[in-house]
Simulated scan of single mutants.
Amino acid sequence: MKRIVLALTLCAAPAMADVVGPGGKVQDCYCTDKSGTRVELGELICMQVDGRMFMAQCQMSLNVPMWREVQEGCLSSGLRQNLAPDLGTNSSSSAS
């Protein structure tokens, strides 16, 4: 009998993971960034809080969407700008 109750409890656990609101409707869970833009569960963004920058992931905790720090610092990309014109590649000049 105990095994049957345990098996039924384990089978029902995934169904209880959804956030259900009034009227039995499943609620759509997501996080928001500082500008109020929607960020889906599992997405990563760079956050700056109290002068610290870090990568954070939108996750669920006790049926509440929240930000969790997953890495110090932020991923970034930079392009070098060549401010001086390249004078040696002009194809219009001919060498005689």
Rank of each mutant, 00 (worst) to 15 (best):
L62I: 07
C31M: 05
R68N: 11
V70M: 11
G42V: 06
P14A: 12
C31K: 05
S35P: 04
T9M: 13
C11H: 01
R38W: 01
G42E: 09
L8F: 12
A17R: 11
C74I: 06
I45Y: 02
F54R: 03
R52P: 00
P22R: 13
W67H: 05
L8Q: 05
M60P: 08
G24R: 09
L44R: 11
V19F: 05
G24F: 11
K25S: 10
M53V: 09
R52F: 11
T37S: 10
Q59Y: 00
C29P: 10
L8R: 02
A12I: 13
M55N: 07
G42S: 08
L62W: 10
G51F: 04
G23A: 06
G51P: 03
I45F: 01
N63F: 15
M66H: 06
E72R: 09
I45H: 00
G73D: 02
L6Y: 07
C74S: 09
L41K: 08
A13Q: 13
C74H: 07
P14S: 12
G73R: 02
Q59A: 11
G21D: 12
S35C: 00
Y30A: 13
G24L: 07
Q71C: 00
G23V: 08
L62M: 14
A15Y: 14
A12W: 11
S61M: 11
Q59R: 14
A17E: 13
R52V: 07
E43H: 06
M60V: 08
A7S: 14
A13V: 15
M16I: 12
W67K: 08
